[in-house]
Amino acid sequence: MLSMKEKKDTSGTTGHGTLIVTWLALLFLTGLTVWIAGVNTDRHGVAINIIVASMKAGLVLFVFMRLKYESLFFRLILLLIVVTLTAIMALTFLDVLYR
């Protein structure tokens, strides 16, 4: 399933530099989202906050959890989960919004 190159990468080590930069980025995004929530209280707040949270989740997934280095299969199942959750939400809201 895995090509030789991927096989080598999956067991590799994430450097300290990368980890520290990611950590700082996560802290920055946390600060950003709190700041946005403080100044922006209209409807767009929901979307912006979810987007920032997803960026943070992406950093954790791809760097800390090393999804960047894993085989395609792992990323595909992440996609599958996101699609599934979206489908559930969309179909439920078809009921809730039009009831």
Binding site: A87, L91, L94, D95, V96, L97, Y98, R99
Partner: peptide, 16 residues
Amino acid sequence: VVWGHHMFTSGMSDVS
């Protein structure tokens, strides 16, 4: 994605 067919008479929206 077909679970709603158990709920046709439960008062779901017509769209769903």
